[in-house]
Design a protein around this nucleic acid. Structure first.
Length: 430
RNA sequence: GUGGAUGUAGCUUAGUUGGUUAAAGCGCCAGAUUGUGGCUCUGGAGACCGUGGGUUCGAGUCCCAUCUUCCACCCCA
């Protein structure tokens, strides 16, 4: 049956070659995050279902139809995390991390689970890098978080990544805005497409980015959130922009950016990039000042973003940005005959203990096949061991690229001989 | 969730109006003077033709269902 030989829909295996790419991404992102003062948190894959209902929002599509929710054997309802923010916030509250001084700055790599119809760049199990900052209401915090995202794209040398920002205000000014927006669209109800009629009920801001030409024409004249911001929200947004300007982070204000999660307030942003001809959000986030209180903590401002690892990988691939692959084998030791076999194995062990990537044949192959294999795995050097070499106590070290050979000792000075020979060659190549 | 495509060896594909043991290239393995890789030559292994039904004397080819992948929408990282 195919279930045995086919991964479930929307999931992907990562094989060694690609895993090497993941490792590089993670290493770079970790170093960038810690440079900016963020510390890693690791939280459970599943949480109480209620955490997401509260944290993500009962009215969102994610909670309403995309969560992997099930009862465990104790009858508790648990859910595979559909995003990283709620769990991180929960952990921060549970352990009272806010007592260690504010702001608290977290980053994480998590797998996330959403029951969606899979497409390229949209998986049921996907991975996010996320950053969270708790305990600062200052616009500088917004800029700092955005800057972290930006610096990651810069580190990889990615092109055509656009930053769009917007402010969706605080609960009070947004309420006024929604009222105005609803009134506006109600007035032109007859012209809207079917999905937008539905949006009008559930989330009128979504109508703003409808792709239908009719709706977008109507949306063009709709009231804009930015015109409804209260004085505080307006000042906040202006200061965020000032701070971004100060560090030279380019952005465009896009008044129609809406976030699908209920917890957002004020600043929202997206890093967009073209992937296979369509523009996808690779990284998105914003401020959510109400979240912590919603989860039962004392009111505390917070913000953060999620960055889709698979999408980042697609983007790197598409822009042909080569990350160094997994390290090839350095030295392959080929052998002929039983005594040489054990000698080769012993030499490999010596090399391994000195952190040299060595390998020898474990398939009982002929010399020629061993050489072929050494070539295939990209060995830089090759050593052939037979009865003659064992008797002489010396063997020829072959540079697989140039074909040059050099005699080195197989005795106590083997490691030194090998290392000097290799170092000399590398010096020559410069 | 809605609509539309797709599926033949590890990979890329061929397979004629349904007709004998399903092809090819690349890759893999092994040989070409039991001591040296990359080039060449020769040979070999490898496919229940996504899966399950149905039509038929006979199905990779037709029909239905189902799964996967992909595209648009919904939504989103």
């Amino acid at each position: 049956m195919a279930v045995l030989t086919q991964a479930p829909r929307g999931t992907e295996d990562v094989l060694p070659e690609e895993a090497a790419q993941w490792q590089i991404l993670e290493t770079v992102m970790r170093s960038e995050a810690s440079l900016h003062g963020f510390g890693e948190v690791r939280t459970p894959v599943f949480e109480h279902t209620e955490l997401f209902q509260r944290g993500v929002g009962d009215t969102t599509d994610i909670v309403q139809k995309e969560m992997y929710t099930f009862l465990d054997k104790g009858g508790r309802s648990v859910t595979l995390r559909p995003e990283g923010t709620a769990g991180a916030a929960r952990a921060m509250l549970e352990h009272g991390v806010y007592n260690n001084g504010l702001p608290v700055k977290f980053y994480y790599f998590t797998s996330c689970y959403r029951y969606e119809k899979a497409q390229k760049g949209r998986l049921r199990e996907f991975h996010q890098f996320g950053a969270e900052l708790y305990g600062s209401a200052d616009p500088l915090a917004d800029a700092e978080v955005i800057l972290l995202g930006n610096s990651i794209f810069e580190r990889f040398g990615l092109k055509d990544v656009r930053l769009e920002i917007n402010s969706i205000g605080c609960p009070s000014c947004r309420a006024k805005y929604l009222e105005a927006l609803r009134a506006y669209f109600e007035g032109r109800k007859g012209e809207l497409c079917e999905t937008c009629l539905d949006r009008l009920e559930r989330n009128p801001m979504r109508i703003l980015d409808c792709k239908s030409p009719v709706c977008s024409a109507i949306a063009a004249d709709a009231p804009r959130m930015l015109d409804y911001l209260c004085d505080d929200c307006r000042a906040h947004f202006e200061s965020v922009k000032e701070a971004l300007d100060a560090v030279g982070v380019a952005y465009t204000v896009n008044p129609s950016i809406v976030r699908g999660l209920d917890y957002y307030t004020r600043t929202v942003f997206e890093f967009l990039a073209p992937i296979d001809g369509r523009e996808l959000a690779v990284c998105a986030g914003g401020r959510y000042d109400g979240l912590i209180e919603e989860l039962g903590g004392q009111s505390m401002p917070a913000l953060g973003f999620g960055l889709g690892m698979e999408r980042l990988l697609l983007l790197l691939k598409q822009q042909s940005i080569e990350l160094p692959g997994s390290d090839p084998c350095e030295l392959f030791i080929a052998f002929l005959g039983q005594p040489a076999k054990l000698a080769a194995f012993r030499l490999c062990d010596t090399l391994w203990k000195s952190s040299v990537q060595a390998a020898c044949d474990v398939n009982a192959r002929g010399l020629k096949a061993q050489m072929k294999y050494a070539d295939k795995i990209g060995a830089k050097y090759c050593l052939v061991l037979g009865d003659d070499e064992l008797a002489a106590g010396k063997a020829e070290l072959k540079n697989m690229k140039t074909g040059e050979k050099k005699k080195i000792s197989l005795g106590d000075s083997f490691l030194d001989d090998y290392l000097t020979a290799v170092t000399m060659e590398e010096d020559l190549s410069f």
